[in-house]
Design a protein around this nucleic acid. Structure first.
Lengths: 346, 346
DNA sequence: CGCCGGGATTAGAGCGCTCCAATTATCGAA
DNA sequence: TTCGATAATTGGAGCGCTCTAATCCCGGCG
């Protein structure tokens, strides 16, 4: 299990260690003859460069670290896809870590990357205190995705949360809803902005904003919905902070023998693939996740290549996707729509 | 951005580099006095040990690498949770990578860990050729999860695929189904065994096994189901290779105006959280994913601590979860059940 | 009062690689 | 044939840490 080193390869190939190093890095200034000799020897020994040594000597890792808040939320893998695609086209290798929904885990993940001295770090859906991110950014360029952040040192990529929330409220109000509740994302990234956007939009319409707390998970959606349904006066529409929460709320509502959207309209956020399936067909707000991932990498590379030193704050436009979980409220509306909606039958 | 080194800390604290090293590793043989001095100095400088240097000098990374085939399939995050929990209780740090469903990406991910010299690697749902895994295992202990493998050097953790498939077929046959199709997982991990299990079980019942190809993705499920529905004689039941595929098939079936389970019964595999939601309520085969993740770590640690040198092949028992997507076939059965099934209404 | 033992500390030799300056080989031109 | 230039190769000095062996320090003991 003890691995061969460059020294071993050099000896076998009958050249110097430095030459082997050049070959391993595809330097053009190596004769074909010695190149093949080295490559053969390396192959024969099963040689593989030692990353740690390489990093130590070269003082760069050619690696970017990606921290995802929650792998169970499809939003994150979607971003990861974008990040991966962009990273593949660069010379950087990707290393990931999950925050498993807790700040402590996230901190640990980031810390690992800092110790590793990755060239850059992308944090998606950070739950860290702004100060902690700021501090980390002192030692490595960081791009935060999906977490609005006003910092003049940390780059960020977001969608316009306020606007997204407004799109939802406007849509529901237009349908005739007045009692609209919001299941928020608690301390999750972007939750505060979505909540604020909801409150502002409601007030704009002269409506009373009603917020119950959630946590961006499906279970959280179930719990919050249960609470809402238990009320004397139920809301006629519910805006969940993300699709995962909305799916939980959907299941809970049906469990209670109510129908969506006949009894209650439901809106999510993110436009995760699941929401788009015929079976769920959730009205939601789309965030261009793949693009956000790619943009995060591009933003990071600008820093790494030194082509930008000022802070970058990208804010992409969200868009409403109207599907089958929203409809006008009340029995009248329900009757009016009878027979016109597709009904999966399950 | 240039980081302080141990040397800097030592100088500031007025001690030697070696002492700082001891403090950083919580050695007990350091006086309280110098410990605080060092810690203060480190803090003041914002010192963070350099992982690369540390690894190089100590010849161990205290890191285990985790490679997941597809983040979009909740099966993998579930396993990751188990792995994380177990890793947290050990002294090993976790580093992840996604294979993004392609062998090439997976190979790259594994390669990164090999160069990094992680102490061990856990590959979940590997698509690599057995030979490639075997080769990699020459330089680092590897545990493969969710991919049956006969190797006398690579440890593995699996559920009994054959048995899982049999549970499904038996259940469907018991309900009265005869025309049962299987949407397989193509080249995905474990797909071959599930397929074989399906074929064997069908034959045992004297039925003709009908297999169409899928790829463990939702899109694959949609495509395969479309093909099945287009047939002159549709199957009365479909066994999808995993839940993701089943969800795709479900949506597709409903799109076609058919009802599950009235027109077609549907079974998945994995028992992913999504399948358990009231809204989907999918009959499926449960794999103890969290436990599998933990077991993978335990298995790896045994190797690392040298308490086992023989190969370990854990095979856990799958179990059937009967929910609302399976029912007896045919119009008669349908009539019989009229009004008895819960109907979400959407 | 010198010596001993053990805890605390330190010097120094690497770990496997990159990078730079320096050396050697190669080759055409004068 | 010689020289300069260019190409190819090499030695050696680190990169920032760990680890072993050696040293230091100090109180207690004979």
């Amino acid at each position: 299990m003890s691995q061969p080193t460059m020294e071993d390869v050099a000896r076998l190939a009958g050249v110097s260690r430095a030459l082997v190093s050049l070959v391993m890095r595809d330097s053009p200034k190596v004769s074909n003859h010695s190149r093949t000799a080295v490559l053969d020897a390396a192959d024969q020994l099963g040689y593989r460069p030692n990353l740690a040594a390489r990093i130590l000597a070269s003082r760069k890792t050619s690696t970017i670290g990606l921290v995802l808040d929650d792998l169970h939320n499809p939003f994150f893998p979607d971003i990861a896809d974008g990040v991966n695609e962009a990273a593949e086209q660069s010379d950087y290798r990707l290393l990931m870590n999950s925050a498993f929904l807790t700040p402590a885990s996230e901190q640990r993940a980031v810390e690992t990357f800092l110790e590793f001295r990755t060239d850059g770090v992308i944090i998606v859906g950070s739950r860290l205190a702004a100060g902690a991110i700021e501090t980390a950014a002192e030692s490595v360029p960081i791009v935060v995705v999906g977490r609005p952040l006003r910092s003049d040192r940390v780059d960020s990529v977001n969608n316009n949360e306020t606007r997204g929330a407004r799109l939802v409220v406007d849509h529901l109000v237009e349908l005739g809803h007045g009692r609209i509740a919001h299941i928020d994302g608690g301390r999750g990234a972007g939750a505060a902005q979505r909540r604020a956007g909801f409150v502002a939009a409601m007030k704009r319409h002269g409506l009373r904003p009603d917020v119950v707390s959630g946590d961006f998970t499906e279970a959280g959606g179930v719990a919050a919905m249960r609470e809402l349904l238990a009320r004397r006066r139920r809301p006629t529409a519910v805006f969940a902070a993300n699709d995962l929460t909305a799916v939980g709320a959907l299941g809970c509502t049906e469990d209670a023998g109510l129908s969506v959207p006949d009894d209650i309209s439901l809106v999510g956020y993110d436009n995760v693939a699941l929401a788009a399936t015929h079976h769920i067909s959730m009205t939601t707000v789309d965030q261009p996740r793949n693009e956000m991932g790619r943009l995060a990498v591009a933003t990071l590379l600008e820093r790494l290549e030194g082509s930008r030193s000022s802070v970058a704050r990208h804010v992409l436009a969200p868009s409403l996707r109207i599907r089958s979980t929203t409809a006008p409220p009340g029995p009248a509306a329900r009757r009016k729509r009878a027979g016109t909606r597709n009904n999966p039958g399950r």
